[in-house]
């Protein structure tokens, strides 16, 4: 355990005097954990998030922080800070500027990859120290309950009858919804009419009000409307079907002959030049988190998946994700 560890962060600085004066307390703190050999951050940890409080990645990371603390996987107090602005670039820059910092990690969400692409800024993901991608979300294609199409194939045929006759509601240009619409167009050859709204909530409202024909939804948001017969699910865009009774009858797009596999994924990354020992610390913590019952319950409850891509593969995984997004956004004409 490196007791004199580089105290660079402003957060630790506040605690420096305190911690130096109580070396024994710190030794105990380190020894009490299962990773006494490795290095652990001192003092409170910040998980930086780029959405305003309440957004999906924010809710997820608050859950992560809560479970990590409650299950005593990490004993340092973890706070989620929302550094909003610049479509996640303010949050990303905050962490990018904390080279070698031990107490800050960044939430990885899709805008970390896509914003640099759509705004023509230099890439961000490859400058960070990848830790883990451990949350995945599926996406569903839904249409109005009274739509004549019963399968995804019929829906595509319907869309092909007249170009741009099918209206799709989704979030802002370049969002997941937009990219999925692009994928559907590419795989089917049909041309759709994508109407961007101010976020997923507004898009869902437009759909429920009957103003558009199609919408892309994550399972958790689709469920209440399925129950109430307000939407009809045509396809799930994952490799395999979900197993819950609510969704097991929704066929994948692949089964129906359309090679569309797309989803959302979230994870964590450290600032540039993060100590490999610390990466290991986080890697262990995330693996332990994924094994807890509390986390499994969260994943089930929010209809997510949690396949841990650990630190050794995270870099490659993120590069792969980046290339996929880049290719798709180029097709959509949104890449700069």
């Amino acid at each position: 355990m490196n007791m004199t560890g580089k105290v660079k962060s402003s957060l630790t600085r506040r605690l420096m005097l305190f911690s130096l004066s109580s070396v024994s307390a710190l030794l105990m703190l380190g020894a009490g954990e299962g990773y006494a050999q490795g290095k652990a951050p001192q003092g409170p940890i910040e998980i930086t998030s780029g959405t305003s409080p309440g957004g999906t990645p924010d809710v997820l990371m608050r859950r992560v922080a809560k479970i990590l603390n409650e299950e005593k996987i990490i004993t340092n107090p973890i706070v989620v800070q929302n550094r909003t602005g610049g479509s996640w670039m303010v949050a990303a820059n905050w962490v990018l500027n904390k080279k070698g910092d031990e107490n800050t990690v960044l939430t990885i969400a899709q805008p970390i990859l896509t914003t640099p692409i759509t705004t023509g800024q230099p890439t961000v993901y490859d400058k960070l120290t990848p830790i883990s991608m451990f949350i995945q979300g599926d996406l569903l294609i839904a249409v109005q309950p009274n739509s004549p199409a019963k399968t995804f194939k019929e829906f595509v045929d319907l869309a092909k009858q007249r170009e741009r006759s099918i209206k799709v509601a989704g979030a802002q240009a370049g969002s997941t919804d937009h990219m999925v619409t692009g994928l559907v167009e590419k795989a089917s050859g049909a041309k759709l009419n994508y109407v961007p709204f101010d976020g997923g909530g507004a898009a869902a409202t437009a759909f429920l009000g009957g103003n558009v024909d199609m919408i892309v939804l994550p399972p958790s948001e689709a469920l209440p409307h399925v129950k109430n017969n307000k939407i009809k699910l045509l396809a799930i865009l994952s490799e395999s079907r979900r197993t819950e009774p609510e969704f097991k009858d929704v066929p994948t797009a692949k089964e129906q002959g359309f090679d569309i596999v797309w989803g959302q994924s979230w994870g964590l990354a450290g600032p540039p030049g993060m100590d490999p020992e610390l990466v290991k610390f986080w890697d262990n913590a995330i693996q332990k988190l994924a094994a807890t019952d509390a986390w499994k319950a969260t994943v089930k409850e929010m209809f997510l998946r949690s396949q841990v891509v650990n630190a050794s593969q995270a870099k490659e995984h993120m590069a792969q994700l980046h290339d996929q997004h880049l290719a798709l956004l180029r097709d959509l004409g949104l890449a700069k």
Binding site: G86, S87, M89, T118, T119, A173, P196
Partner: peptide
Amino acid sequence: GTDPILGSERLTFGMTELLD
């Protein structure tokens, strides 16, 4: 900021903070 419909930047003068 970013034009919400087409995603093009308007009057941000290259400032990241103004993207939203």
